[in-house]
Simulated assay, not measured.
Amino acid sequence: MSKVINILHAGALRLPIAQCSKLFKKANPSIEVILESYGSRACARSIREGNQVDIIALADPLLFDELLVPEYVDRYYIFANDQIVLAYDEFSRGSDEITENNWTEILSRPEVSFGRSDENLDPCGYRTMMVWQLAEKYYQKPGLYRSLNNKCTEAMIYPKSYELASSVLEGNLDFAYIYLCVAKQFGLKHISLPDQVNLSNPAHAAFYQNAKIELQGKHPGEITTVHGAPIEFAVAISKNSEHPENAKVFLELILSKRGQQVLENCGLVPY
């Protein structure tokens, strides 16, 4: 086997990929593991722009279909799912009052800040906007999506969801829309949203389809529309992998029972 493996992954998968990398390194001590992370759409675009990696792990399998298959990836494997939560800590304004039933009112307060990730770089960003659309329908609050979207100004939009969690801990944001696994990794408190809203439950897939967001497409100037769907994470071996043997071993690890236990320990729901 060659002496290197390059892994490109979604920021939200930072801890599970790091933990799986440690297991891989323990079994293959002579191989250097190189990790690189961005928002998932940014990851996919970097592959299209010539970034050569061995493993690609993204926070939305649709990105493989939209941007990577078949030119850069032959096939991908869905390995876990998650949900969007509203995360905070004990210093967040309104944290002593917020509940699943009143979070829309708490976030509307002028002094309360909240953030999301960039929808054109990170699936968590467009999924957050979908959550707002679904919440408007679920709670029957016309104008809720527009109100939340207008209040979440550019200064509160981050390249990837992982950075949102750090910002809450640093006191720059009161609340952040992130994956449950990221909230758990950072030890943040969180509000669980109803299944009809949080994009977690395949039983509500038809309702999720009511939400849609326009994004930058595959080519400059193109626009693509993404509809709501249950949150899933997927992994693949790149067709331009320079170390395919290593990539195959890592892929088998993350899909194995041992890998699934790592994912579960990191807050994901493994498949």
Rank of each mutant, 00 (worst) to 15 (best):
Y126I: 12
F24N: 03
C266S: 05
V112I: 14
N51F: 10
L169I: 12
E90T: 12
W103Y: 08
D60P: 04
P142H: 04
K212T: 11
E245F: 09
K184A: 10
S241P: 07
R116C: 06
V53A: 00
Q185N: 14
Q52R: 15
Y179P: 05
S46N: 14
E264T: 09
I31G: 05
D82T: 14
V73M: 07
L253M: 02
F233G: 04
D195P: 13
W103A: 02
T225H: 03
S37W: 09
T225M: 11
N120R: 14
Y158D: 01
K25D: 00
R14I: 09
N201W: 07
E245V: 13
A155C: 14
A42Q: 10
A247Y: 04
V182Y: 04
L255C: 14
E242D: 06
F250A: 04
E170I: 03
C181T: 07
R75T: 15
S256I: 11
Q19R: 14
P110R: 13
I55P: 00
A176E: 11
I31K: 06
S113C: 01
Y145K: 03
N149G: 01
I5N: 08
Y138C: 02
I231K: 08
D65I: 13
A165N: 03
Y38M: 12
V53D: 00
S256W: 05
Y76C: 10
L148Y: 06
I157F: 04
S166L: 14
Y38V: 09
V69P: 02
G221V: 13
L68G: 08
E245H: 12
I223E: 12
A42G: 07
K22L: 11
G143H: 08
P61M: 03
P16A: 05
K141A: 03
K26D: 10
L23T: 03
S192Q: 12
Q185W: 11
D54T: 11
P142F: 02
E252A: 15
